[in-house]
């Protein structure tokens, strides 16, 4: 059986992502999965992923393209209280500046900085 996820991708920018998610998110209908960053060689693509309860194969993605390494990522914790863990991980593993994020939660203080960036060689 081959999976066929219905990925509904909506392009957003870092400035309006919190508002867009606030308008869209209904906690009894949508399940927040995670925040994901993908390094496309110097530029990041950041996805906020949601899935729908009780529906088949529906994945809603808010995607911010071409995010630079020193961009300020807004936090969606006011809308989704469980998002802090995923946001803090972005701060740790990509070395990004995320609103209200503590660092050093996922990697040791003396560990490599921003290991998941494409230019970090380990």
């Amino acid at each position: 059986m081959m999976i066929n996820p219905d990925m509904q991708i909506e392009e957003v920018t870092l400035d309006n992502v919190v508002e867009k998610i606030k308008d869209f998110y209904d906690e009894s209908e949508w399940n927040f999965i995670t925040v994901n960053a993908t390094d496309l060689g110097g530029k990041l693509q950041i996805d906020w992923l949601f899935s729908k309860y009780g529906a088949k194969n529906i994945i809603k993605i808010f995607r911010a393209q071409d995010v630079s390494y020193d961009a300020f990522i807004p936090s969606i914790v006011p809308v989704i209280p469980s998002a802090w863990l995923a946001e803090w991980e972005l701060a740790d593993l990509f070395g990004l500046e995320v609103e209200n994020a503590a660092t050093g939660v996922f990697i040791a203080p003396d560990g490599p900085k921003a290991p998941l960036r494409a230019d970090t060689k380990l």
């Binding site: 059986m1 999976i3 066929n4 996820p5 309860y53 009780g54 529906a55 088949k56």
Partner: peptide, 14 residues
């Protein structure tokens, strides 16, 4: 009582 199960929400195996 929250009815969520990926086995019902995502087609990966029958």
């Amino acid at each position: 009582g929250l009815e969520t199960d990926v086995r019902a929400e995502f087609d990966y195996l029958p």
